[in-house]
Every structure is written in structure tokens, then in C-alpha cells.
């Protein structure tokens, strides 16, 4: 059994209004060292498979098809023992 840990974030070229608002809030709390905040999505996908390379291939497909919109988002993932 494996688990895919997937991170989806807005592409650098895309403005992130939520991240911008959070940056402002952190600044107003005195965290002046904050240069930028980007907000993304974290997913845990449990996989019923024992084939690691197959799992990587399938998760990659899931990201391309549904989990990320590659017009605006980047994704990366790790496969860990579930």
C-alpha cells in the first residue's frame, strides 16, 4: 500500500490574491521578514497498489487530468509507504 502526497500550487506567473492577503496580515502582525506567501492545496491519496512505478505513473495522470489545472497550477507529489 502506498500513499501519494500531492501539492498543488498556483504557477509563479499567476497572481495569488489569497497569498497576498495573508502576507499583508502577517506583516500587520509584525512578521516583517515575510517576503511572499503562496497558498496551495495539499492532498493525500491512498492507493491500493504495491507497484511503485505504476503508482507514480497513475498519480501523475490524476494530477494532469483532475487534481491540478495546468493552465494555472503546478503540482508535485511524493509516494510514501501507506
Amino acid at each position: 500500500m502506498y500513499k501519494a502526497v500531492v501539492y498543488v500550487t498556483l504557477r509563479q506567473s499567476v497572481l495569488d490574491p489569497q497569498g497576498h492577503a495573508v502576507k499583508g496580515a502577517l506583516h500587520s502582525l509584525g512578521f516583517d521578514e515575510v517576503k511572499d506567501v503562496r497558498i496551495g492545496r495539499y492532498l493525500e491519496v491512498e492507493l491500493d497498489t504495491s507497484d511503485l512505478s505504476k503508482a507514480e505513473e497513475r498519480v501523475s495522470e490524476m494530477c494532469e487530468k483532475l487534481l491540478a489545472n495546468t493552465v494555472i497550477e503546478d503540482y508535485r507529489f511524493e509516494i510514501v509507504e501507506g
Binding site: 499567476v14 497572481l15 490574491p17 489569497q18 492577503a21 489545472n69 493552465v71
Partner: peptide, 17 residues
């Protein structure tokens, strides 16, 4: 329609939130 690829681009959160 954008998600389906029938139209290009995407719709993001309003800049004002």
C-alpha cells in the same frame, strides 16, 4: 467550459477576494 478545454484560460479568485 474552461476546465473542459472548450475555451482557453482559467478563472481565478477575484483579486479583491
Amino acid at each position: 467550459l474552461t476546465e473542459a478545454g472548450l475555451l482557453p484560460g482559467a478563472l481565478l479568485r477575484n483579486r479583491s477576494l
